[in-house]
Amino acid sequence: MTQNNLSPKLYPTFREGSIILAVALFIAVVFNLIRPAGINMFGFSSAALIKEQQAKIPEISLWEAYSLYLKNKVIFIDARDPLSFAYGHITGAINIYPDDAAFYSAKLRIKADQGFIFITYCDGPQCPLSKETAHVLLLRGIPNVKILVNGWILWLKAGYPIAKGKK
């Protein structure tokens, strides 16, 4: 008797839940397929993740970075906050804070295919932002990412070209 009373309420409840599950799955899969920053649906590899986390991101010296800059083979990535970036940055650099790095992966991958090297920098020898941005980019499969430790100060002291403004 109890089951007879409950089933007319329970059945529509389960049906409603199943509809939402199915719609969510459909939208999620389609959205992931069409978005540039989509991920491989079954491609998670814990082994690769551990390897990437243990991998040390190579550092580059100021002189090497400047030579590449002169040859126009490098894209500088300023990992600092937008205000510091607007106050001054390496000429031609783009501002990618670690939290936003994933959004740029599709654009940067195209540049990587064209042979560009990416150099992240921030301000101060202990600044973690350049490492964090570089790490996210590596996780996203961007090759040739290097870090210019204490990059902003070194670049500024050397008197190399800088720019101001948001772009």
Binding site: L21, A24, A28, V29, F31, N32, I39, F42, G43, F44
Partner: peptide
Amino acid sequence: DCVINLLAIFLPWLEVLIAAS
């Protein structure tokens, strides 16, 4: 490993749809 990415794609949309409903 094989279900982690699928869940990472699916769960957020489920949450948004639940919110909308």
